[in-house]
Design a protein around this nucleic acid. Structure first.
Lengths: 132, 132
DNA sequence: CTGAATTTGTACGTATGTATC
DNA sequence: CGATACATACGTACAAATTCA
């Protein structure tokens, strides 16, 4: 419900964290829609603009997408690398995880781009070479 | 100075673009400080909060860093420059910073892609899954 | 050391526009 | 058309960090 008044961090960060935990923890699943901005503002006891700030952060992290007139949806993203503790997680693993996530995103972008290109010039003789 | 009133894009995006051009075009060099928020608001003829919104975007793109009480600085091009004393800037941090910048760029590309898709193919949200 | 001035950061409130249903 | 929800913009107030007289 409300925020931790003893938490020195700003409200919008606390809200962003809470929602991020809700997403990563399965409370909100991919494709689900989040409660409306007004509803979230009511729940946390803060102003709608502050909720919006929190949502902007999650958006910039790629966790959610918002559709005007509809709602805010949890983004359908590849399962984030499991967060193991520092004992076993080497920097190498963390970097490789990021790189793999980036390549996965790039493949998705390339697919969407290819579909668009086919619409614009429907007769592409050669398929563009893509390293996979 | 002012904004293009014929440009349909929101003011904060136009300002972000203008400043981004200023940075990439050498108008503001790495290490330089940008004009203060109030000054930018005056120049563009918009509210300070709107300037802040634009700066938040550039910040999330890794182009600038802001220091409370001081100013907003241009960051680009592998010169972490000031205050590396504490050796907090390890190679790992540098690599992860680059990765985050790459993901920020990709999100921007995804946004442009989404806009194109909506033009070609109206009404196809990413995950229009109806809630239960 | 104090304190004012400047600048960024956070939060609230309101109004209006736009998209969807 | 009306209700709902997200998007943009403006304005205000105060907090926090920095600088400098």
């Amino acid at each position: 419900m409300g925020l931790d008044l003893n938490d020195p961090r700003p409200a919008y960060q606390q809200v962003a964290d809470d929602l991020r935990r809700g997403i990563k923890g399965g409370r909100y699943k991919a494709g689900d829609q989040l409660p409306s901005g007004r509803e979230l503002a009511r729940r946390y006891g803060i102003a709608p603009m502050t909720v919006r700030h929190a949502l902007d952060i999650l958006k910039s992290e790629g966790l959610i997408v918002s559709r005007q007139g509809r709602a805010v949806f949890v983004r359908d993203t590849a399962s984030p690398a499991e967060e193991v503790e520092t004992s076993d997680t080497t920097a190498y693993d963390a970097v490789m995880g990021q790189l793999q996530a980036i390549r996965a995103d790039m493949r998705q972008i390339e697919d969407r781009l290819s579909r668009l290109e086919e619409l614009v010039h429907p007769n592409t003789p050669e398929a563009p070479k893509r390293a996979r």
